[in-house]
Design a protein around this nucleic acid. Structure first.
Length: 892
RNA sequence: GCGGGCGUGGCGGAACUGGUAGACGCGCCAGACUCAAAAUCUGGUUCUGGAAACAGAGUGUCGGUUCGAUUCCGACCGCCCGCACCA
């Protein structure tokens, strides 16, 4: 049979399309239909959002992609979910904003420049062009008129304006911080470029190096960012918890320890502790390798200097520091124990003490802190338990290999004995606050945050230039707004590592905007997290001369539904929350929380394959056989291939499926349906060939169902109305499905909505022969309701197929413009309910009784069951529990 | 190392707030249609025993709370995400 393109039959979306099922192709052809509808939507500007539209606004946003060059299945899944939300809300009568852009600055463009001699700009925009094409072939309801890339001059220009405003508002500061330094390549490395302590290109041992850098003062907002989490009710609890822990508010005590011996270059050292109640169990003091006292000691102690140097070769990531073996260097210093007269404690320099948390010095109480305990066991220090667990015995309680960190009462602790942990903390604080060392109180209570200021300086080319000039006379001078943007120069070389801006004379050497004397332009660019911290606001007025138009930002923000990967749960979301506050402070909008609803989706995974030599093999190059019931794989050339574990799709393991291939083979709708089916959206989904084929079959099934239904609906209705309860059953299912899908889509439980749609399709399929045989008004009416709803429910997920089907049902409008159907409550209630009957919690039968029947009736019906009587053996039940309309449990 | 999460048939998963475990899909088995195959349709499908009725077991492991636990609590095992310069 010749597959005529349906577009021949529906050559316009005008008011009178020609409908003829007689000539329609038997199978749905996405290659014809998908481009047709995409073109139709584009020509009609169906998804272009008007800011002035009177309908209630709804802003749905997916985390924008990095333009790596190809979309991957993770993108397909993420953007399909967002599109379902957008199309669903649109059908619900909202004015939906659903934009797309590109997170386009970043390291890969510079790496490509070094590897392939291609300019980062050219590389990036080429990637954007091909990815845009790919996304467009998916049929997403995006407003492409608002598209931008963060590397667009327009965008980074406005970002520089924001920086200048933040600087004026006191939200920016400069201070030193450590970076990974590659001594061979003479360049700063990202954490991911440090592999086992060595630079990824040079292989040289990485050193920590101090640089003066730009920071956003996010820590000023620590308390506010923490407390506002309580209001983020539409965020996953796990993300809220992660953010709380990241901010890490802790109440503790700063305690001065006076030196007893040795030359520290100071009279005392200040430590921060959250467990001052364990002070009587202290057995050492440890300083960060970056502590000034450690530096002072190292001046005359080459061994210590070497130890500190060794610590600095660990790289700067917390992960590297904390997973390294705990090591300490015993200094000649001792300190006086603050609460035990005459006692002294040794002072170590230890690799696990961080300079930028607390005071850079700690006291160790090994009995009640695991890290301290490991350290004490290693260096043979005393372990004195001072907190007794509830029901513990003070004479017998001892610490083995595990520290006790739970609740209890103080003991071995002089005047604290008998107090619980909280009371002991208060008592010791009160005591030390009144004592003086060197004229200062020995302790002060302090609220401390783990959250550090946000370092935004990057010594790289492909980022937003920080718009300031360093003048020897005037100091730091912001570039005047009328001289913005500070443009990235085009003529740069990537032959040598390091920052091309720093060796670019015309960029670097400028005159001071204030005094006109020779000055230096800042050559650091901004962290790409800055770019992604306000793009959601820019989408509300993407062409404005200013960063935002405040009325537009306030109209749309916060984003009603934000969707992206869990890997962004902390940094990106926290930075964006900070940015919203900073933008409010500087008058760019009123909203302080950028994302009202947040959804974090899981990854797309796939089996891995390796050939006999252990090389990874791509799924596209594999043929599967079933031998003795076992699934085996071989390469296209017949070589055996072993099937490995299921892992996140990654280029390195070649277990990737190219969305383009899927779209070419099955069409966008099938790919969309597959990524929504089965797996709950927050969980990882495994891509399987069987799964995609199942989705393809359902596409064809819907098409066939609708075309058959449209034939039946064209029958002449019987003039005599036959009473048919089956039409009522059909309507009940249709309305029940309506109610369920509404809840499921609103809650982003796409997999459940998919299951509902399958059930509706199954029911329609069974009902159609009934209608064909008895085409009464009631039956025809029920079929029309059911089949139209089936098409409407599939529309957000498979929009092209749904539009085609909608035409078959004699509509001359588009389904994407059709209001969402409502469930009729009267079809949702049943007169009777089926209750399970349990004996001792085990299901033994069921009873059907009227809904809301009295408990006594349920009990009587349950006891009259034969299976129940058999188990009771004539004995009276000890107890009967009736949960109305749910269950009866008999305790024998 | 620290913080967070996940674990249910052969497979993906469902189960509202502690109330019938396995909806729906995939796969498989049987049947229909076909010269045949594909496609499609119908039925079956947690495991063990049994012809069946039915009985027993069962939601990573071990234990606890409860009339009743996939759901709550504790310990453990495995996998995943983040850890501030990947995006």
């Amino acid at each position: 049979m010749v597959a005529y393109p349906i577009s021949l039959y529906f050559s316009s979306i005008g008011p009178r399309p020609v409908l003829s099922m007689a000539n329609a192709p038997e199978r749905y052809n996405p290659r014809e239909q998908e481009p047709f509808w995409q073109k139709t939507w584009a020509e009609n500007q169906t998804f272009v959002t008007n800011n002035e539209d009177a309908r209630p606004p709804y802003y749905v946003l997916e985390m924008f992609p990095y333009p790596s060059g190809r979309i991957h299945m993770g993108h397909v899944r993420n953007y399909t979910m967002g599109d379902v939300v957008a199309r669903f809300q649109r059908a619900k009568g909202k004015n939906v904003l659903h934009p797309m852009g590109w997170d386009a600055f970043g390291m890969p463009a510079e790496n490509a420049a070094m590897a392939n001699k291609v300019h980062p700009r050219a590389w990036t925009y080429e990637n954007i062009a091909s990815m845009r094409k790919q996304l467009q072939s998916m049929g997403f309801s995006l407003d492409w008129s608002r598209e931008f890339a963060t590397c667009d001059e327009d965008y980074y220009h406005r970002q520089q304006m924001l920086f200048i405003d933040f600087l004026a508002a006191g939200l920016v500061t400069r201070k030193t911080s450590k970076v990974n330094w590659d001594p061979v390549d003479q360049t700063v490395l990202a954490n991911e470029q440090v592999i086992d302590g060595r630079g990824w290109r040079s292989g040289a041992l990485v050193e920590q190096r101090e640089l003066t850098q730009w920071f956003f003062k996010i820590s000023d907002y620590a308390e506010e960012l923490l407390s506002a989490i309580d209001g983020l009710n539409d965020w996953p609890d796990k993300v809220r918890l992660m953010q709380r822990n990241w901010i890490g508010r802790s109440e503790g005590l700063r305690v001065l320890f006076e030196f007893a011996s040795g030359d520290a270059g100071a009279k005392s050292v200040e430590v921060f502790t959250t467990r001052p109640d364990t002070l009587f169990g202290a057995s050492f003091v440890a300083l960060s390798p970056d502590h000034p006292i450690a530096a002072h000691l190292a001046e005359d102690d080459p061994a210590l200097a070497e130890f500190i140097a060794e610590c600095r070769r660990m790289g700067t990531s917390a992960e590297a520091i904390e997973t390294a073996e705990k090591k300490g260097y015993l200094t000649p210093l001792t300190v006086k124990h603050p609460v035990i007269d005459g006692a002294t404690l040794p002072v170590y320099v230890a690799n696990f003490v961080l300079m930028d948390y607390g005071t850079g010095a700690i006291f160790g109480c090994p009995a009640h802190d695991q890290r301290d305990l490991d350290f004490a066991r290693k260096y043979d220090l005393p372990v004195i338990p001072v907190v007794l667990p509830p029901e513990g015995d003070a004479d017998e309680f001892a610490i083995g290999t595990e520290a006790y960190t739970g609740p209890g009462v103080a003991f071995n602790s002089s005047f604290l004995d008998g107090m619980d942990v909280e009371a002991a903390k208060a008592a010791i604080a009160e005591y030390l606050e009144t004592k003086k060392i060197d004229g200062k109180p020995q302790a002060a209570r302090q609220v401390n945050f783990r959250l550090r200021d946000w370092g935004i300086s990057r010594q790289r080319y492909w980022g937003c230039p920080i718009p300031v000039i360093h003048c020897d006379t005037c100091g730091i001078v912001p570039v005047p707004k009328d001289q913005l943007p500070v443009r990235l120069p085009e003529d740069v070389e990537f032959d040598t590592p390091g920052n091309p801006l720093d060796r670019h004379p015309r960029f670097k050497h400028v005159d001071c905007p204030t005094c006109g004397s020779k000055a230096r332009r800042e050559t650091d660019t901004m962290d790409t997290f800055v770019d992604s911290s306000w793009y959601f606001a820019r989408f509300t007025a993407p062409h404005a001369e200013t960063p935002t138009i405040p009325e537009m930002a306030d109209k749309w923000l916060p984003v009603d539904q934000y969707i992206g990967g869990i890997e962004h749960a902390i940094l990106h979301l926290l930075y964006s929350r900070f940015f919203a506050r900073a933008m409010q402070k500087t008058g760019h909008m009123e909203v302080t929380e950028p994302f009202k609803g947040l959804f974090t989706q899981g990854m797309v995974t796939h089996e891995t394959y390796r050939d006999a030599d252990g090389n990874w093999v791509a799924p596209a190059d594999i043929v599967f056989d079933t031998i003795n019931g076992d699934r085996t794989a071989r390469s296209a050339t017949g070589e055996p291939v072993s099937i490995g574990s299921v892992e996140k799709m990654s280029k390195s393991k070649k277990n990737v499926v190219d969305p383009d291939d899927m779209i070419a083979a099955y069409g966008a709708d099938t790919a969309r349906w597959f990524v929504l089916s089965d797996s709950p959206p927050e969980r990882d989904v495994q891509w399987t060939e069987a799964g995609i084929e199942g989705a393809w079959r359902f596409v064809q099934r819907v098409y066939k169902l609708v075309s058959e239904a449209s034939d039946i609906l064209a029958l002449d209705p019987l003039t005599v109305e036959a009473e048919d309860p089956r039409s009522i059953d059909m309507l009940k299912i249709a309305h029940r499905t309506t109610a369920q899908i509404d809840t499921d889509l609103a809650g982003l439980r796409f997999n459940r909505a998919v299951a509902q749609i399958y059930e509706l399709a199954n029911a329609i399929q069974k009902f159609m022969p009934v209608v064909a045989q008895a085409p009464s008004m009631a039956n025809l009416g029920a079929l029309r309701v059911a089949i139209e709803r089936l098409v409407q429910f599939t529309a957000p997920m498979m929009p092209h197929l749904a539009e085609t089907c909608w035409r078959f049902l004699a509509h001359d409008t588009m389904v994407c413009d059709t209001p969402w159907p409502a469930a009729d409550e009267s079809y949702l209630v049943d007169d009777t309910v089926v209750l399970a009957v349990q004996v001792n919690g085990k299901r033994r039968g069921e009873i059907e009784i009227p809904k809301d029947a009295p408990n006594a009736q349920a009990e009587a019906a349950a006891l009259s069951l034969e299976a129940v009587a058999r188990i009771l053996e004539g004995n009276a039940p000890r107890k009967v529990i009736v949960v109305p309309n749910r269950i009866v449990n008999i305790v024998a």
